[in-house]
Design a protein around this nucleic acid. Structure first.
Ligand code: MN
Ligand code: MN
Ligand code: MN
Ligand code: MN
Lengths: 237, 237
DNA sequence: CATAAGTTTTCGGTATGCCTAAATACTACG
DNA sequence: CGTAGTATTTAGGCATACCGAAAACTTATG
């Protein structure tokens, strides 16, 4: 059952999974190549290998989709990655913009024992420093019910539950502006002529207004409703 | 200054260093091959590469010796390995026979930042779970003044300061027999006709006698003198 | 519906790091 | 001091994972 995949294989599978985590369409070869920073030809070769391993479904010139087994492997890697990020922030004092690169390598080096011991030590967290859900060891993914800040109408209030970790510079900027996970925000209005979104931020009893650039509004996810939402689990397949 | 060596390169350098850590003679090609579990021919190729990188001195058919630069790299890897082992035991509840394999992989995946943050969190320890000295970030090696149990005369008393981590089975056996680092022992006598060494073990107010097989007596290092010896540092070169 | 534009795959090649088998160099002994 | 035996290096190959360029296929457009 433990087939000992190479780190490249693990990264391919993880990247295929990540693409459909917050949207629906399956990933294409060139998108995969772009995300992995390799040539299209390299993807063609690896996808054939992944298919031979039974990790993806793929017809020539078609999109790449994970099989059940591929999804299982992906969730294992995502769990590792996010637990490691949590460890780096909670225990080693990393900031949330520094953790991704480190976790990207460590995830391939740790054993299953290490991961489970670490999870226990961290108190079995259900989300990582960016608010991304941490799959359980059994492959269940905590459901996070949130919308992009960019999609919300004026007047909508909620709590930041996820910030895309794709751009470290953006994360650094937000930290500097004292905007974190669990910060409460209200959409005030959109400035005219394609201007930025204005949000009100609750902070230490008072509040302040903040202009949100479009790229930022796309990266920040907000959940309305109760202050500390319980996480519901959807079973792994 | 950071030249990004491959994990194989790092393991070669570390193994060359380790060979002379507790004895004098430099390592030969075949010894290196045996320790790394690779063919002699692989060593010949890699040693040429290491020489090109300026990490070792080597003439054809001669022994392999680290250069100053090689020693610096080796000490970096040894520091990583031993800090990771310490972390696994102290923070994740590993036993001392489980840590080596895990650290062997992790040492190549962690960053300098990770290592220094980890060292700080662990309180800058000067020895690992097996009593092996942890080099400082500057490359100074805590000097451990100890002798093999097998070399001591009857009547000699001391404290266990190091146990070779080469054989996990031996470590497991010793743990089961409640013999740890910092256990106080006195050599009682050697049983005749090449029989085992008998040592007295101080334990919880009382004491017990224990028969030590030759392989064990070679693996256990004892330091006489004060109960908690201060560590002296020898500067890295 | 034909062809241009874009995407994907195939092809030939590079770099690591490993292997076995063969050649070569040391060393120790008669 | 020559030679047998051992240690080491060289030669030829394999597997992985990457590349750029060329060929093959899909799709979009006029
Ligand atoms: Mn990775
Ligand atoms: Mn994350
Ligand atoms: Mn290693
Ligand atoms: Mn150790």
């Amino acid at each position: 059952m433990k087939s000992q995949l190479s780190s490249s294989t693990e990264d391919y599978v993880k990247t295929i999974y990540a693409f459909t985590e917050w949207q629906d369409a399956p990933i294409t070869s060139s998108q995969l190549a772009a995300r992995l920073g390799v040539a299209n030809s390299s993807v063609s070769e690896m996808v054939r290998k992944l298919k031979d391993l039974g990790l993806v479904d793929h017809r020539p010139y078609g999109a790449v989709r994970l099989t059940e087994e591929g999804r299982r492997v992906a969730l294992t890697m995502v769990r590792r990655h996010r637990l490691l990020e949590t460890f780096l922030v909670n225990e080693l004092g990393y900031s949330w913009d520094e953790v991704h690169v480190e976790a990207e390598l460590l995830e391939h080096a740790v054993s299953d024992l290490f991961v489970e011991r670490l999870a226990a030590k961290l108190g079995d967290p259900s989300r990582d420093p960016h608010g991304d859900p941490i799959p359980t060891a059994e492959g269940a993914v905590p459901r996070i019910d949130a919308h992009r800040l960019s999609e919300l109408d004026p007047g909508h209030a909620g709590r930041i539950t996820r910030i895309s970790d794709e751009n470290p510079d953006l994360l650094r900027y937000l930290a500097q502006e004292r905007i974190f996970l669990d910060t409460d925000v209200t959409v005030v209005r959109r400035k005219p002529f394609g201007g930025p979104l204005v949000v009100r931020i609750d902070e230490g009893g008072g509040s302040r207004d903040f202009d949100v650039a479009d790229e930022v509004a796309d990266a920040v996810w907000v959940r309305s409703g109760p202050a500390h939402p319980g996480c519901t689990l959807e079973p792994g397949t």
